[in-house]
Amino acid sequence: MTLFSLLVQLFITFFKIGMFGFGGGYAMLSMIQADVVTRYGWLTSGQFTDIVAISQMTPGPIGINSATYVGYTSMVTAGYGHAWGVVGSFTATLAVVLPSFLLMWLLSKFLLRHKNHPIVEQVFTGLRPAVVGLLMAAAFMLLTRENFATPSQPWQFYISCFLFGVAFVGSYCYRINPIALIVACGAAGWLLF
């Protein structure tokens, strides 16, 4: 792919994600994944999961973190070198926040005044359950061989499932800090794999 068309695609992809990314960072993940992993193959599902891990351990919103990372990595993976990687990350990050600026005008004039308007409420009644679905899709789509191995590699597969269970219970039932869980599972991976 030529340099220019890759940059344009990065821009369009992240602009769309910024434009339709309702429901916060995690819900945006399924959009990022649908385009970046499934459609264009800029990253593998394993690389994508690594970005989410890095995003959770570093400051800042996940949408910005992943745009910056994907922009850089897709350019470098396509063979354009580090400087173009920086250009790619700038392009993707700009693209993901640009719709927010454009929508601000509309929102501050329209939504602020009509927040309790029945049509706005009706639309959001429909959006809320769909956003839960988006999040569910993101989780489904990450249940891959790259993230969990296969039963043909029983050692890695069952330990992966166990770590999944530990992280789920730790976060959901005991509200353990996600960073602590990531560090603990990373240490387990270092010892066991």
Partner: peptide, 23 residues
Amino acid sequence: QSVFKGIRPAVVALIAVPVFKMA
């Protein structure tokens, strides 16, 4: 790579948890 092999399943779990919270 070993560290990230351990981290990946945990991250998937951390994405699955907010599904239930948001529901």
